[in-house]
């Protein structure tokens, strides 16, 4: 049995909506089969009653044990440090976060907003939004770089815009079944079991990437090719299991012809969506990708690309995902 409290700050509820798509276990199974005792959640039916205010304050004051504090959404500091752009229970949400993070055994930041600031923190960040322990890639965030929850862990970041339901359900099951110690985190405090691999890992277009064959157009054009060269796909430089653990049990953005936007990385939305950056690969002198795949450099990449193009078989220049 583990108690869980879930709050939403500067959020769209997209992580909650994604969470409700979960199967094996479903959101309901977590409660009925895995003993997650959801003390409060903004969208789910559950115990509130006359004790609800008491539950929140009791958790905040340390009078009621809180095992897992899940935060969805940014912590808003504005206007002028008051936090009044996001009021909850007649006080700024940021004050609730301060209190609850102090009391929880484990603090989970769910989705980009809570991890890094996400979309609301995009330039000019009008609400002064921050993530729980990061602002974009800079460590610190709302709780500070040295924050540790009662169990001695930093904030567990489960990024994504939104999260895939499995990324959170499996972590919650791990915690509820006493496997919290097995959750190894990467340098951005993400569970590495999910975020060591690349979005490209398992992508159906990876053979076209191998031979440097580009998709030339959206729609019917995505029946072949890789989206990295022209359409700004961030699959080779983004850590996620999107093509290992499929979305809605069916597909992924890159499989469906949509470039990866890198939404599990702190910089999302990349380039602050400045003119010319949306669905377009940023290039040097008109042809060379400004960013090359993680772990390589431009010289190596160019040599590899030249050889790959020579090696490209005929099928790699034809449609593959055909009717």
């Amino acid at each position: 049995m583990a108690t869980l409290l879930w709050l939403q700050g500067g959020a769209c509820s997209g992580n909650t909506m994604s969470f409700l798509n979960a199967e094996e276990p479903s959101a309901i199974d977590l409660v009925t089969d895995f003993g997650i005792d959801v003390l409060w959640h903004p969208s789910l039916g559950m115990e509130l009653g006359e004790q609800a205010q008491k539950i929140l304050w009791d958790c905040a004051n340390g009078n009621r044990p809180l095992d897992i504090f899940v935060m969805e959404g940014t912590v808003m500091l504005g206007p002028k440090g008051t936090g009044r752009y996001d009021m909850f229970a007649e006080r700024p949400m940021k004050d609730w976060v301060t209190d609850l993070a102090k009391q929880a055994q484990i603090v989970v930041a769910l989705g980009d907003c809570a991890c890094w600031g996400g979309i609301p923190a995009t330039e000019p960040n009008p609400t002064d939004s921050v993530g729980l322990q990061y602002l974009k890639r800079q460590r610190g965030g709302f709780l500070g770089p040295d924050f540790r929850s009662k169990m001695g862990l930093p904030v567990i970041n489960i990024p994504g815009c939104p999260i895939h339901p499995d990324w959170v359900t499996q972590i919650l099951v791990a915690i509820a079944s006493g496997r919290a110690g097995d959750i190894a985190l990467d340098e951005l405090q993400r569970p590495q079991t999910f975020f060591k691999s690349f979005t490209q890992t398992g992508c159906t277009r990876v053979q076209f990437f191998e031979y440097k064959q580009s998709t030339t157009e959206f729609g019917q054009g995505t029946r072949t090719g890789c989206l990295f060269y022209e359409f700004g796909c961030r699959g080779p430089v983004t850590r996620s299991p999107c093509n290992r653990i499929l979305w809605n049990r069916q597909s992924s953005k890159t499989r469906a012809g949509m470039p990866c936007t890198g939404c599990t990385e702190p910089e999302f939305p990349f380039f602050d969506l400045k003119p010319g950056t949306v669905f377009k690969t940023q290039k040097i002198s008109g042809s060379i990708p400004k960013e090359v795949p993680t772990g390589t450099d431009h010289v190596t990449y160019m040599a590899h690309a030249a050889a790959a193009r020579v090696a490209a078989p005929q099928w790699s220049k034809e449609d593959m995902f055909v009717v």
């Binding site: 939104p162 049990r249 890159t254």
Partner: peptide, 8 residues
């Protein structure tokens, strides 16, 4: 998701 890659 089959048409658009994912929801939401």
């Amino acid at each position: 998701a089959i048409l658009g890659g994912q929801w939401p």
